[in-house]
Design a binder for these strands. Structure first.
Lengths: 351, 351
DNA sequence: GATTGACATTGACACGTTTCAATCACGGTG
DNA sequence: CACCGTGATTGAAACGTGTCAATGTCAATC
């Protein structure tokens, strides 16, 4: 890193023109060195590169973006920055983005429509190259507006986005519910509680559908085999609170296993069990959904349906990249199949 | 949201000039409406605002930044996007940033020097308004370079940044270690294991200093009262692996309590205990450091030294804001004192 | 009625870059 | 020797905005 001869002076930021002067070429040539190095003779290119290094020049992306019309940053709009599920996704997006030399603008909608809209406007203002978005709900009007602004996007975890509207990357929630159901039934459980948030959340609704299918295909009667427990939010507190309800049992008898709509609920449930001196899987088998990092960290480890979160983010970003490269790109819908991760919280039902 | 008369056409993005034309004023006036609304007559302002709404104009920040020289985005450089500690900090930064209408550029150094440097160059390229940075180590040359580029920054969790170099916001690690030590000693523990990473990490080194102080002020001999267990990384796996070492005991007898340099280690340790059919606090008291969300989620809850993470992020961002407002701003060093959160993993030593 | 001042608005320029048509240098070909 | 083609370089224009000196308007004051 070259020394500045006068560090205290508020040096006028060095631009392409000072570099040009210093190297004895025109500004256009400097620009060429930066953008199409192959077009410029090796000898002059080296001279320019030396000047860049000596003056410690760093390209002003505002100027660049303004003139070229394209920006070098993409937006990532998540529902909740602190949710471990999203951070893993963010890592995937970020890793893929740096490979294209793109910066990631982190935006947080906090599950609030106003904030979602405001954040998308911000992206439009930046003339962002694109956006990876986890929409709050199935209302696509904000995203449609984004398209109208000429900003491509990829929806995350929203398999129901019509393919003509845009790309989407998601995980098959029905398959996940099915696999979970089969796992528990395979262990001999014939009465299963489904601890879930409101079915207005499409994802958990589908997980329930899958679970239902598992129950019916096993020849069980959903009426007696399933105990549906609704809580308002998918957080640990609600999971802990639900313990009493589920242990009290449904109309006939108490469930021997509980399938939670996400890991946060499941972890809360496990904690609630511990508080009461009970434990999984001895007293009840517990299963989660998502496979967040912590799921492996508790004892017993939480058996759960793993979402390929990192891959999800990475794929979303790479779809976005295809948009940039190939202007005639058609929208795509990628659907991943989740996998069950067996840990200690589920076990065979002892009759 | 107004309808676009021809949604399929690649509409040339509407600028300040079309708005001006549509409202029958000059571009300058539109700019004034956007930036100094008080200077323009109510009647014309309303007309311009109507035009903005009708044309669905959104300000191009590239142009704006270029001309004004200031950008509307700040950088947040973290060591690891997925670490729950950082995400909480990120939330604080983000909340404070939106209040100033600033966007947050999320950058991940992944504890790699090359990536840290690259990310800071990126920020410089954006002519970012400022940066909140968690430096990898105590090497300040990258940050100095940033200053030279005219970009103010605030260091996070680095109390050792000289005040003449820049602002810092951090938590008193020595006080934290001291408090933890006092807590355990107060419970009657006279042999305490300190499970820690390498002391080259300044933060954990200071925590150890605090712990030492607690031991000596209680009149105990550090030689016999403290069992130092070093592991290469501060992650759960290492915590779990360390269980055997610590249960085996030091040179004299085994410790009755373990203080972990962070929660990740502590959680791994708890899991390791569970695996072996043991549990805190019956078999050994366990204490962590950080108070990440999960600490409250396990059973028993993890007693830990709580860092005001959200506040840390928020404060850092607000210090940055002061830089913008007041150009004659002097650097500041904010030091928070951590607090102990009592949960179930520690208990009195039964003699 | 002339002068002043306050307030609103205008118009042109500048920010740093990219782009592209135009120019230049030069070696090869007819 | 004239001509052409190729490849390297140039210079000016343009992107959309903010700024500021200059101009315009109007009512109040002398």
């Amino acid at each position: 890193m070259p020394e500045n001869p006068n560090p205290t002076a508020a040096r006028r930021s060095v631009g392409i023109t000072q570099v040009a002067k210093h190297a004895g070429v025109s500004p256009g040539t400097v620009s060429n060195v930066l953008n199409r190095p192959e077009r410029v003779a090796t000898e002059t290119r080296e001279r320019v590169e030396a000047a860049i290094r000596e003056l410690d020049y760093v390209r002003n992306s505002s100027g660049s973006n303004l003139r070229s019309g394209r920006s070098d940053c993409v937006g990532l709009l998540v529902l909740d920055v602190t949710n471990p599920y999203f951070t893993e996704v963010a890592r995937g997006v970020e890793d893929e983005a740096v490979e294209s030399g793109l910066a990631v603008l982190l935006l947080n909608s906090a599950e609030d429509h106003t904030r979602q809209e405001r954040n998308l406007r911000l992206l439009a203002g930046q003339r962002a190259a694109g956006a990876v978005v986890m929409p709050i709900d199935d209302d696509l009007s904000d995203l449609r507006w984004l398209s109208k602004q000429g900003i491509p996007w990829v929806a995350l975890d929203r398999g129901d986005v019509p393919i003509e509207e845009g790309c989407s990357v998601s995980v098959d929630n029905e398959a996940g519910g099915l696999a979970a159901g089969r796992h528990l039934i395979g262990l001999g459980h014939e009465r299963i509680a489904f601890l879930t948030g409101p079915f207005s959340i499409d994802q958990v609704h589908r997980r329930h559908q899958g679970l239902l299918q598992a129950v019916t295909e096993a020849g069980l009667d959903p009426e007696t085999a399933l105990d549906l427990v609704h809580v308002p939010q998918l957080n640990p507190e609600q999971g802990e609170k639900a313990v009493d309800t589920i242990l009290a049992g449904g109309p006939r008898q108490r469930s021997t296993a509980v399938f939670c709509a996400n890991d946060q609920l499941a972890l809360g449930f496990l904690k609630g069990l511990g508080r009461r001196g009970l434990r999984a899987p001895d007293d009840i088998s517990v299963m989660g959904y998502d496979d967040i990092d912590v799921a492996a960290l508790v004892h017993p480890g939480l058996t759960t349906v793993a979402q390929p979160k990192y891959k999800l983010g990475r794929t979303a970003m790479s779809l976005l990249r295809e948009h940039f490269d190939d202007s005639g790109h058609r929208h795509e819908r990628r659907l991943f199949t989740p996998e069950i991760v067996l840990r200690g919280s589920t076990a065979a039902h002892r009759a």
